[in-house]
């Protein structure tokens, strides 16, 4: 691995987390597509990778563990309010080891004493529940786009990277390719994503969810420079006609910004498009991982590299 890609997550062992026990996956490249049947654990797998990459210290580790629950519970939290400690408590245990770091989180309760145990590469920190003061430490260039899509605020923050790279015109051109009725995309007043159509600026909410998802991915690719981007249900709301364009953008931009991408899908068309575009661009830094349950109902991973993806699609093998 060259210095430029030294930060890439290439393999992970999820010893304990949600549906995973002693689970191993390896062979990750720059752009990685994850697939598997419903409820097999695709999102949980991405969350496990996200927590591992995010855990550079105890605060960022707690932030990542909190974030994965917060993202999933977004709508409930909106109506019922939230208690950050309760959200953190919902993850009872997380243990993983990757080529980057070995981390562990668990909560113990003994003799009415509750403790939070954080460990990063054997550096152990034990915090009594009464003394726990959650300090969120966000890492701005590691992003997770969940299947509900990003809020206006998330998008506004990511758009800053577009401005920093002076790519506003390029983004508008890509948006126009996605929907030729849109002339331009902008953040009006710093927070309101708007599209110009027939000379009039309209809120992005007036357009389909696919457009927001598409713009979020492009902005995130610039935001996650030299870092990681996780996209759950990448095809969410996007018409299959646009899949090839989206992969072309992801392959090109991720290389440019040195961003490692993990995405999930269960769409056959999305997977075919991934293989087709990779072959067309001769993009070899890719992998495809399928999560499967074997006959003993144990969760396993099968990771294909570029050569095997190419071979399997040419032979019309069902690789989903």
């Amino acid at each position: 691995m060259t210095a430029i890609t030294a930060h890439f997550l290439t393999d992970i062992e999820i010893k304990q987390f949600k549906c995973f026990t002693d689970f191993k996956a390896s062979g990750f490249e720059r752009v990685n597509l994850i697939s598997g049947k419903n409820n097999v654990g695709k999102t949980a797998f991405m969350e496990a990778c996200y927590i591992n990459t995010y855990s550079i210290n105890v605060n960022s580790m707690a932030t990542a563990i909190h974030s994965i629950k917060f993202m999933r519970e977004n709508l409930n939290i909106l109506f019922n309010g939230h208690d950050s400690i309760k959200i953190l408590d919902s993850t009872k245990i997380y243990v993983s080891k990757s080529n980057l770091r070995e981390i562990e989180f668990h909560i113990t309760e003994k003799d009415a004493i509750k403790e939070y145990i954080f460990s990063i590469n054997s550096d152990l920190v034990t915090i009594n529940a009464k003394e726990l003061n959650l300090i969120f430490e966000y890492i701005n260039n590691i992003k997770f786009i969940d299947n509900f899509g990003w809020s206006d605020n998330d998008l506004a923050r990511a758009y800053e990277a577009i401005q920093k790279h002076e790519k506003e015109t390029d983004l508008s051109a890509l948006v126009q390719e996605f929907d030729d009725s849109i002339d331009s995309f902008k953040l009006i007043g710093g927070t309101k994503p708007q599209c110009k159509t027939k000379g009039e600026w309209r809120d992005i909410t007036e357009f389909g969810d696919g457009l927001r998802h598409y713009i979020s991915i492009i902005c995130a690719l610039y935001t996650c420079e030299n870092s990681y981007l996780f996209i759950d249900e990448i095809d969410n709301g996007i018409y299959y006609d646009h899949f090839d364009r989206l992969w072309k953008i992801i392959f090109t931009l991720s290389k440019k910004t040195n961003c490692q991408v993990f995405a999930t899908t269960h769409s056959k068309e999305m997977l075919e498009s991934f293989a087709r575009v990779a072959k067309k661009l001769d993009e070899q830094d890719i992998s495809y991982t399928r999560l499967v349950k074997n006959k003993n109902q144990e969760l396993k991973s099968i990771t294909f590299d570029y050569a095997v993806i190419k071979y399997s699609t040419e032979n019309e093998h069902e690789v989903r």
């Binding site: 499967v292 074997n294 006959k295 396993k300 099968i302 990771t303 294909f304 590299d305 050569a307 095997v308 190419k310 071979y311 399997s312 032979n315 093998h317």
Partner: peptide, 15 residues
Amino acid sequence: HPAYISLSLSVENDE
């Protein structure tokens, strides 16, 4: 050969 890599993975996972 990619066929053997793909096949070995499928055998390993009882497919």
